[in-house]
Amino acid sequence: MSHTAHIPSHRKPRPQRTTKLRAGVAGGVLSTLAVAGTTGAAHAAEPVTETIEMPTLTTELATKVAATADATQQAADTYQLQAEQDAAAAQAAKDAKKAKAKAEAKEKAEKAAKKRAAEERAARSAERTTLSASGSSASASAQSVAPASGSVGTVISFLKAQLGDAYVMGASGPNAWDCSSLVQAAFKQAGVDLPRVSQDQSVAGTPVSLSNVQVGDILYWGGAGSAYHVGVYVGNGQYLDAANPSKGVVIQDLSGYPASGAVRVL
Protein backbone atom coordinates (compact mmCIF):
# COMPACT_ATOMS: atom_id res chain seq x y z
CA MET A 1 0.00 0.00 0.00
CA SER A 2 1.26 3.38 -0.98
CA HIS A 3 2.42 5.61 1.75
CA THR A 4 0.24 8.32 0.23
CA ALA A 5 -2.94 6.39 0.17
CA HIS A 6 -4.17 7.74 3.42
CA ILE A 7 -3.65 11.29 2.33
CA PRO A 8 -6.84 12.72 1.04
CA SER A 9 -6.66 14.21 -2.47
CA HIS A 10 -6.93 17.96 -2.79
CA ARG A 11 -8.00 17.80 -6.59
CA LYS A 12 -11.44 19.09 -7.24
CA PRO A 13 -13.82 16.64 -8.80
CA ARG A 14 -14.31 17.11 -12.65
CA PRO A 15 -17.65 18.59 -13.31
CA GLN A 16 -20.05 16.49 -15.45
CA ARG A 17 -21.54 19.48 -17.40
CA THR A 18 -19.51 18.73 -20.49
CA THR A 19 -21.00 15.32 -20.88
CA LYS A 20 -24.46 16.63 -20.36
CA LEU A 21 -23.91 19.45 -22.87
CA ARG A 22 -22.67 17.08 -25.45
CA ALA A 23 -25.53 14.83 -24.81
CA GLY A 24 -27.86 17.78 -25.21
CA VAL A 25 -26.28 18.84 -28.47
CA ALA A 26 -26.49 15.33 -29.78
CA GLY A 27 -30.08 15.15 -28.76
CA GLY A 28 -30.84 18.42 -30.53
CA VAL A 29 -29.23 17.26 -33.72
CA LEU A 30 -31.10 14.03 -33.58
CA SER A 31 -34.31 15.86 -32.89
CA THR A 32 -33.71 18.15 -35.88
CA LEU A 33 -32.99 15.19 -38.12
CA ALA A 34 -36.04 13.45 -36.84
CA VAL A 35 -38.23 16.45 -37.57
CA ALA A 36 -36.71 16.89 -41.05
CA GLY A 37 -37.20 13.24 -41.77
CA THR A 38 -40.79 13.39 -40.60
CA THR A 39 -41.49 16.47 -42.73
CA GLY A 40 -39.83 14.95 -45.80
CA ALA A 41 -41.77 11.76 -45.33
CA ALA A 42 -44.98 13.73 -45.01
CA HIS A 43 -44.30 15.69 -48.18
CA ALA A 44 -43.27 12.56 -50.02
CA ALA A 45 -46.49 10.90 -49.10
CA GLU A 46 -48.75 13.71 -50.27
CA PRO A 47 -50.19 13.10 -53.80
CA VAL A 48 -50.02 15.81 -56.53
CA THR A 49 -53.49 17.19 -56.96
CA GLU A 50 -52.84 20.23 -59.31
CA THR A 51 -54.16 19.75 -62.90
CA ILE A 52 -54.06 21.89 -66.08
CA GLU A 53 -57.31 22.21 -67.86
CA MET A 54 -57.00 22.24 -71.68
CA PRO A 55 -59.66 24.06 -73.69
CA THR A 56 -62.15 21.81 -75.35
CA LEU A 57 -62.54 22.36 -79.14
CA THR A 58 -66.26 22.78 -79.34
CA THR A 59 -68.30 23.10 -82.53
CA GLU A 60 -68.75 26.81 -81.94
CA LEU A 61 -65.04 27.33 -81.47
CA ALA A 62 -64.25 25.28 -84.60
CA THR A 63 -66.73 27.38 -86.58
CA LYS A 64 -65.11 30.58 -85.39
CA VAL A 65 -61.66 29.28 -86.30
CA ALA A 66 -62.85 28.28 -89.77
CA ALA A 67 -64.54 31.66 -90.27
CA THR A 68 -61.35 33.44 -89.27
CA ALA A 69 -59.35 31.34 -91.74
CA ASP A 70 -61.85 32.07 -94.52
CA ALA A 71 -61.74 35.79 -93.76
CA THR A 72 -57.95 35.74 -93.85
CA GLN A 73 -57.92 33.90 -97.19
CA GLN A 74 -60.53 36.25 -98.62
CA ALA A 75 -58.48 39.27 -97.55
CA ALA A 76 -55.40 37.76 -99.19
CA ASP A 77 -57.33 37.06 -102.41
CA THR A 78 -58.71 40.58 -102.42
CA TYR A 79 -55.24 42.04 -101.94
CA GLN A 80 -53.83 39.91 -104.76
CA LEU A 81 -56.71 40.86 -107.07
CA GLN A 82 -56.20 44.54 -106.31
CA ALA A 83 -52.48 44.20 -106.99
CA GLU A 84 -53.19 42.52 -110.34
CA GLN A 85 -55.73 45.21 -111.26
CA ASP A 86 -53.25 47.96 -110.34
CA ALA A 87 -50.55 46.30 -112.45
CA ALA A 88 -52.94 45.91 -115.40
CA ALA A 89 -54.02 49.55 -115.11
CA ALA A 90 -50.41 50.71 -115.02
CA GLN A 91 -49.56 48.63 -118.09
CA ALA A 92 -52.65 49.89 -119.91
CA ALA A 93 -51.68 53.48 -119.16
CA LYS A 94 -48.16 52.80 -120.40
CA ASP A 95 -49.45 51.19 -123.60
CA ALA A 96 -51.89 54.05 -124.16
CA LYS A 97 -49.11 56.59 -123.72
CA LYS A 98 -46.92 54.72 -126.19
CA ALA A 99 -49.78 54.40 -128.70
CA LYS A 100 -50.55 58.09 -128.37
CA ALA A 101 -46.91 59.02 -128.99
CA LYS A 102 -46.82 56.72 -132.00
CA ALA A 103 -50.04 58.18 -133.40
CA GLU A 104 -48.77 61.72 -132.91
CA ALA A 105 -45.50 60.86 -134.65
CA LYS A 106 -47.41 59.27 -137.53
CA GLU A 107 -49.71 62.27 -137.83
CA LYS A 108 -46.73 64.61 -137.81
CA ALA A 109 -45.00 62.56 -140.51
CA GLU A 110 -48.15 62.52 -142.65
CA LYS A 111 -48.54 66.28 -142.35
CA ALA A 112 -44.91 66.76 -143.32
CA ALA A 113 -45.33 64.41 -146.30
CA LYS A 114 -48.47 66.22 -147.46
CA LYS A 115 -46.71 69.55 -147.13
CA ARG A 116 -43.77 68.33 -149.19
CA ALA A 117 -46.09 66.87 -151.82
CA ALA A 118 -48.01 70.14 -152.06
CA GLU A 119 -44.78 72.09 -152.42
CA GLU A 120 -43.57 69.73 -155.13
CA ARG A 121 -46.86 69.99 -157.02
CA ALA A 122 -46.72 73.75 -156.80
CA ALA A 123 -43.15 73.77 -158.11
CA ARG A 124 -44.04 71.44 -160.96
CA SER A 125 -47.11 73.46 -161.88
CA ALA A 126 -45.05 76.65 -161.90
CA GLU A 127 -42.44 75.16 -164.22
CA ARG A 128 -44.65 73.14 -166.52
CA THR A 129 -45.65 74.46 -169.90
CA THR A 130 -49.36 74.07 -170.63
CA LEU A 131 -50.66 72.78 -173.91
CA SER A 132 -50.92 75.58 -176.45
CA ALA A 133 -54.39 76.07 -177.91
CA SER A 134 -52.87 77.16 -181.18
CA GLY A 135 -52.03 74.31 -183.51
CA SER A 136 -49.74 76.54 -185.52
CA SER A 137 -47.65 77.40 -182.48
CA ALA A 138 -47.29 73.71 -181.68
CA SER A 139 -46.19 72.97 -185.25
CA ALA A 140 -43.67 75.82 -185.19
CA SER A 141 -42.06 74.40 -182.09
CA ALA A 142 -41.94 70.83 -183.37
CA GLN A 143 -39.35 68.55 -181.79
CA SER A 144 -38.80 71.01 -178.89
CA VAL A 145 -39.25 69.77 -175.33
CA ALA A 146 -40.43 72.01 -172.47
CA PRO A 147 -38.15 72.19 -169.42
CA ALA A 148 -39.10 70.17 -166.35
CA SER A 149 -37.74 69.87 -162.81
CA GLY A 150 -37.81 67.56 -159.83
CA SER A 151 -39.43 64.17 -160.30
CA VAL A 152 -41.00 65.25 -163.59
CA GLY A 153 -37.56 66.27 -164.82
CA THR A 154 -36.25 62.80 -163.95
CA VAL A 155 -39.02 61.18 -166.01
CA ILE A 156 -38.45 63.45 -169.00
CA SER A 157 -34.68 63.02 -168.88
CA PHE A 158 -35.02 59.25 -168.91
CA LEU A 159 -37.45 59.34 -171.84
CA LYS A 160 -35.20 61.61 -173.89
CA ALA A 161 -32.29 59.25 -173.26
CA GLN A 162 -34.25 56.46 -174.97
CA LEU A 163 -34.93 58.39 -178.21
CA GLY A 164 -34.00 56.25 -181.17
CA ASP A 165 -34.46 52.92 -179.33
CA ALA A 166 -36.42 50.22 -181.13
CA TYR A 167 -40.07 49.37 -180.66
CA VAL A 168 -40.65 45.67 -179.91
CA MET A 169 -43.95 44.38 -178.59
CA GLY A 170 -43.40 42.99 -175.09
CA ALA A 171 -39.86 44.36 -174.75
CA SER A 172 -38.88 46.28 -171.62
CA GLY A 173 -35.44 47.76 -172.37
CA PRO A 174 -32.78 48.66 -172.20
CA ASN A 175 -32.56 49.19 -175.98
CA ALA A 176 -36.03 48.10 -177.06
CA TRP A 177 -39.45 48.97 -175.65
CA ASP A 178 -43.15 48.87 -176.20
CA CYS A 179 -45.27 51.88 -175.29
CA SER A 180 -46.28 50.84 -171.76
CA SER A 181 -42.90 49.39 -170.69
CA LEU A 182 -41.20 52.68 -171.63
CA VAL A 183 -43.70 54.71 -169.56
CA GLN A 184 -43.39 52.30 -166.64
CA ALA A 185 -39.58 52.45 -166.68
CA ALA A 186 -39.55 56.26 -166.91
CA PHE A 187 -41.77 56.76 -163.86
CA LYS A 188 -39.88 54.14 -161.90
CA GLN A 189 -36.87 56.48 -162.07
CA ALA A 190 -38.94 58.96 -160.04
CA GLY A 191 -40.00 56.32 -157.49
CA VAL A 192 -43.46 55.68 -158.95
CA ASP A 193 -44.51 52.07 -159.57
CA LEU A 194 -46.94 51.96 -162.47
CA PRO A 195 -48.82 48.94 -163.81
CA ARG A 196 -47.25 47.22 -166.81
CA VAL A 197 -49.96 47.52 -169.47
CA SER A 198 -51.62 50.51 -171.16
CA GLN A 199 -55.13 49.68 -169.92
CA ASP A 200 -54.07 49.94 -166.29
CA GLN A 201 -51.80 52.93 -166.78
CA SER A 202 -54.71 54.91 -168.25
CA VAL A 203 -56.43 54.85 -164.86
CA ALA A 204 -53.35 54.90 -162.62
CA GLY A 205 -53.47 58.61 -161.77
CA THR A 206 -55.83 61.57 -161.51
CA PRO A 207 -57.75 62.25 -164.73
CA VAL A 208 -57.02 65.64 -166.31
CA SER A 209 -58.56 67.32 -169.33
CA LEU A 210 -56.46 67.60 -172.47
CA SER A 211 -56.83 71.38 -172.31
CA ASN A 212 -55.01 71.36 -168.95
CA VAL A 213 -52.41 68.72 -169.67
CA GLN A 214 -48.94 69.41 -168.22
CA VAL A 215 -45.42 68.12 -168.74
CA GLY A 216 -45.11 64.62 -167.29
CA ASP A 217 -48.80 63.70 -167.66
CA ILE A 218 -49.53 60.30 -169.17
CA LEU A 219 -51.51 60.44 -172.41
CA TYR A 220 -53.56 57.49 -173.58
CA TRP A 221 -55.42 56.49 -176.71
CA GLY A 222 -58.65 54.53 -176.45
CA GLY A 223 -60.98 54.45 -173.44
CA ALA A 224 -59.89 54.91 -169.79
CA GLY A 225 -59.28 51.40 -168.54
CA SER A 226 -59.23 49.99 -172.09
CA ALA A 227 -56.46 52.07 -173.69
CA TYR A 228 -54.36 50.51 -176.42
CA HIS A 229 -51.47 53.02 -176.42
CA VAL A 230 -49.74 55.43 -174.01
CA GLY A 231 -47.13 58.18 -174.13
CA VAL A 232 -45.89 61.07 -171.96
CA TYR A 233 -46.59 64.73 -172.64
CA VAL A 234 -43.32 66.72 -172.95
CA GLY A 235 -44.76 70.18 -173.57
CA ASN A 236 -45.40 72.47 -176.53
CA GLY A 237 -48.12 70.19 -177.88
CA GLN A 238 -45.81 67.17 -178.09
CA TYR A 239 -45.49 63.77 -176.50
CA LEU A 240 -42.81 61.11 -176.38
CA ASP A 241 -43.66 57.46 -176.92
CA ALA A 242 -42.50 54.13 -178.24
CA ALA A 243 -44.65 54.55 -181.32
CA ASN A 244 -44.39 51.46 -183.53
CA PRO A 245 -41.79 49.18 -185.15
CA SER A 246 -41.18 51.65 -187.98
CA LYS A 247 -40.63 54.74 -185.77
CA GLY A 248 -39.30 53.35 -182.52
CA VAL A 249 -39.02 55.84 -179.62
CA VAL A 250 -39.80 59.35 -180.91
CA ILE A 251 -41.28 62.75 -180.06
CA GLN A 252 -44.49 63.46 -181.93
CA ASP A 253 -46.99 66.25 -182.35
CA LEU A 254 -50.34 65.83 -180.67
CA SER A 255 -52.07 67.66 -183.49
CA GLY A 256 -51.23 64.79 -185.82
CA TYR A 257 -52.48 62.10 -183.48
CA PRO A 258 -54.73 63.56 -180.71
CA ALA A 259 -54.88 61.59 -177.47
CA SER A 260 -58.14 60.33 -175.98
CA GLY A 261 -57.36 61.41 -172.39
CA ALA A 262 -54.69 62.03 -169.79
CA VAL A 263 -53.85 61.14 -166.15
CA ARG A 264 -51.44 62.78 -163.73
CA VAL A 265 -49.33 60.78 -161.28
CA LEU A 266 -46.75 63.43 -160.35
Rank of each mutant, 00 (worst) to 15 (best):
S180Q: 13
Q214N: 11
G225T: 10
T206D: 04
S211Q: 14
A204E: 04
L182V: 11
V168K: 06
W221F: 15
D165N: 15
L194F: 08
V168F: 01
G216Q: 01
S209F: 05
V192T: 10
I218P: 00
G191S: 01
V213F: 05
Q214A: 11
L163C: 05
A185E: 05
L194I: 06
N212Q: 09
Q184N: 13
A224C: 01
G173W: 02
V203S: 07
G170N: 01
P207D: 09
P174H: 01
D200Y: 09
V203G: 00
S209L: 08
A166P: 03
A186H: 13
V168W: 01
A185G: 02
L219K: 10
L210K: 05
A204F: 06
R196N: 12
Q199R: 15
S172M: 13
D178V: 09
P174L: 00
Y167S: 03
V183S: 01
V208D: 02
P207N: 09
A185D: 07
G225K: 07
Q189E: 07
N212M: 00
A204Y: 07
M169Y: 15
N175K: 15
A176H: 13
C179M: 08
V192F: 04
S209P: 09
A185H: 07
V208A: 03
A186D: 10
F187R: 06
P195D: 11
A224D: 00
G222Q: 07
L194Y: 05
V197F: 14
L219N: 02
A166K: 15
P195W: 08
S172T: 15
G205P: 11
L219M: 09
I218Y: 01
T206M: 03
Q199Y: 12
V215N: 07
S180V: 14
S181Q: 07
W177Q: 13
D193S: 14
K188C: 00
S180M: 13
S198M: 06
A176P: 12
A166I: 11
A204S: 15
G191A: 00
D200T: 09
G223N: 12
S180I: 14
G225A: 05
V197N: 15
V183E: 00
V183M: 05
G216S: 02
S198N: 03
V192W: 04
V203P: 02
G216E: 01
P207S: 14
S181H: 08
D200A: 15
G170C: 03
G173M: 03
G223H: 00
L219F: 03
D165I: 12
V215C: 08
N212H: 00
V213C: 08
Y220I: 12
F187I: 11
A190S: 13
A166D: 11
Q184C: 04
M169H: 14
Q214I: 07
S209H: 04
S172H: 14
G205V: 12
G164S: 06
W221G: 07
V197S: 14
M169S: 14
G173E: 12
S209W: 02
S209Y: 05
Y167W: 12
A166H: 10
D200F: 02
V213R: 05
V213K: 07
N212Y: 00
I218M: 03
G223V: 03
S181A: 12
S202D: 01
W221D: 08
P207G: 05
Q184D: 09
S198T: 14
A190C: 11
S202W: 00
L163D: 11
F187P: 05
D193N: 13
Q214Y: 07
